[in-house]
C-alpha cells in the first residue's frame, strides 16, 4: 500500500502543526492515528515525520522509538533506547546518548563477541548529564554505564542491524528537513536583502552557492528514497549510503546558507545557527558522514561488493 499525494500533504500539515505547538509529540501522534499511517506506508510516513521534526528543530525520543520497533518486546512510551555515543558510530559501548524521552525504562545495547545484546535498566539508576555543547537544544543526555550491569542481557542478532538501518533512514530524513528549512531561509533572505542597490540573490556567486545547496538536498532526498525501496539483502548498505549522503549534504548546504546570510548567520538573532548545530548533531548519530565514508571505503578495499543498489 502507499499513501497518495493528497493524503501525504494532509499528514504533513498536521505534523507541522504538532511540531509548531511544541507539545509532546508521542500523544499527539496517537491522536492523529499515526500507527495506521505508518502501517499503510512506512517509508513515506517515516520520511515525512522526521522531515517535519527536522524542519521544526524539535527534540523528541521518536528516533529511539522507531529503532525499538525493530527490536521485538519493547514498548515505546515505556521504553527508550540508549543510542551509541557519537564517537562510537553505530557500535554500542560504555557510553551513550539518551534522547528527549520520558520513558522510565532504558534499553541498553552492548557489543559482545557474539553480536549485540540488549538489557533493560531503570532510567533513574543511570548516571546522566545534559549534553549542551554545539547543539544546546538537542535534549540529549549523555550516559556513562557502570561496570556491574545487565544480568538479563538478550542477544538480538540481525535485528540490531535492522534497527540501525531504520535509525539511519530516519536521521537522513530529519537532516533533510533541517536543510530544507535552512535553504528556504537563505532564499528568502537573499531575495529581500539588498546591497549595492540590488538583491543579494541576484549576484551570481550567491545564486550558484544556493543552487549547489539545492542539488545536494535533492541528492539526499533521492538516495533516501532508494534506501527505502532497496532489496532486503542490500537494505542496510543502502541505509548507510543514504545516511552518508544526508550527512555530507548538511555540511554542503549549511556552509552555504550560513555564508549568504552574512554576519546574521552567526548570531543568536537568526535561526540559522540552530539549523547548523542540529544538522551537525544529527549527522553525528549512528555514524557521521566522514566516518561512514571511511567504513564504506574500508569495506570496499576488503572486497565488499560495490553494489549498484538501484535499477530503473
Amino acid at each position: 500500500m502507499s499513501l497518495d499525494d493528497a493524503t501525504v500533504e494532509v499528514v504533513r500539515g498536521s505534523l507541522r502543526e504538532v511540531f509548531a505547538t511544541g507539545r509532546p509529540v508521542a500523544p499527539a501522534l496517537d491522536e492523529l492515528g499515526w500507527a495506521e499511517v505508518l502501517e499503510e506506508d512506512p517509508s513515506i510516513a517515516t520520511t515525512v515525520l522526521f522531515g517535519e521534526q527536522g524542519r521544526a528543530l524539535a527534540s523528541s525520543g521518536l528516533l529511539a522509538d522507531t529503532m525499538l520497533a525493530e527490536l521485538p518486546g519493547y514498548a515505546p512510551g515505556t521504553h527508550t533506547l540508549l543510542l551509541p555515543h557519537p564517537r562510537l558510530g553505530s557500535h554500542p559501548g560504555p557510553t551513550g546518548v539518551l534522547l528527549a524521552s520520558t520513558a522510565e525504562v532504558v534499553v541498553v545495547p552492548r557489543a559482545t563477541p557474539d553480536g549485540v545484546v540488549l538489557a533493560t535498566i531503570e532510567r533513574s539508576s543511570l548516571v546522566t548529564r545534559p549534553a549542551g555543547g554545539f547543539d544546546p537544544g538537542s535534549g540529549w543526555q549523555l550516559v556513562t554505564l557502570g561496570a556491574a550491569l545487565q544480568p538479563d542481557s538478550v542477544p538480538v542478532g540481525a535485528a540490531w542491524e535492522r534497527a540501525v538501518a531504520t535509525g539511519r533512514r530516519a536521521l537522513a530524513a530529519e537532516i533533510i528537513g533541517v536543510c530544507t528549512a535552512a535553504l528556504e531561509l537563505a532564499v528568502t533572505h537573499t531575495s529581500v536583502r539588498h546591497q549595492y542597490g540590488r538583491p543579494l540573490g541576484s549576484f551570481q556567486s550567491v545564486r550558484h552557492q544556493l543552487a549547489e545547496a539545492h542539488a545536494a538536498l535533492e541528492a539526499a532526498r533521492v538516495t533516501l528514497d532508494v534506501a527505502w525501496s532497496a532489496a532486503e539483502d542490500v537494505a542496510a548498505w543502502a541505509a548507510t549510503v543514504a545516511k552518508l549522503r544526508a550527512g555530507a549534504t548538511q555540511s554542503t548546504v549549511l556552509r552555504r546558507t550560513v555564508q549568504v546570510l552574512g554576519a546574521m548567520g552567526i548570531t543568536l538573532e537568526s535561526d540559522m545557527h540552530r539549523y547548523v548545530s542540529r544538522g551537525a548533531a544529527l549527522d553525528a548519530l549512528l555514524g557521521g558522514h566522514l566516518r561512514l565514508a571511511d567504513e564504506v571505503g574500508s569495506a570496499a578495499l576488503a572486497g565488499a561488493d560495490l553494489h549498484p543498489v538501484v535499477t530503473t
Binding site: 538516495t223 528514497d225 565514508a293 574500508s298
Partner: peptide
Amino acid sequence: TTSRLGSTYADIVTLRSRSAATIRRLA
C-alpha cells in the same frame, strides 16, 4: 584514499538513484 573511495562510491549510488528516477519519469 579509503574515505574518498567510500564517498565516491556513495556519489555513484546517488547519481544512479537520481538518473533512474528521471528515466522512470521519461518512460
